[in-house]
Computed example of a mutant assay.
Amino acid sequence: MVLFLLLVLVAVFLGIVGVAAEGLGYLLVIGVVVLAADVAVASVRWSRRAGRHSIR
């Protein structure tokens, strides 16, 4: 969970810097890619965790 939040903060920071600084639009793209990858990994981890409940 800590890694997820850290990567979200990094993505937001890169997005803000990419928008604010001229000529650094690639940082915005990198931030979006990091955010999308982070959400994908988190959703896979949460779906695996939800599937481990034993039926009694």
Rank of each mutant, 00 (worst) to 15 (best):
M1K: 02
M1L: 07
L3C: 05
F4M: 10
L5E: 08
L6R: 05
L6T: 12
L6C: 11
L6A: 14
V8L: 14
L9T: 14
L9H: 03
L9V: 14
F13T: 12
L14F: 14
V17F: 04
G18M: 01
G18E: 07
G18F: 06
G18Y: 08
V19C: 07
V19T: 13
E22H: 01
E22M: 08
G23K: 07
L24V: 09
L24G: 00
G25V: 11
G25Q: 11
Y26G: 05
L27T: 07
L27V: 11
L28H: 06
L28V: 12
I30W: 07
I30S: 06
I30D: 04
I30C: 02
I30Q: 00
I30V: 15
V32P: 02
V32R: 01
V32N: 03
V32Q: 01
V33M: 12
V33W: 02
V33R: 00
L35H: 07
L35R: 01
A37M: 12
A37E: 04
D38K: 00
V39Y: 08
A40V: 12
A40L: 13
V41N: 05
A42Y: 13
V44G: 04
R45T: 08
R45Y: 07
R45I: 15
R45C: 09
W46H: 06
S47V: 10
S47K: 11
R49L: 15
A50S: 11
G51I: 05
G51W: 03
R52V: 10
H53L: 13
H53K: 13
H53E: 13
H53T: 10
S54W: 12
R56K: 03
R56S: 14
R56F: 10
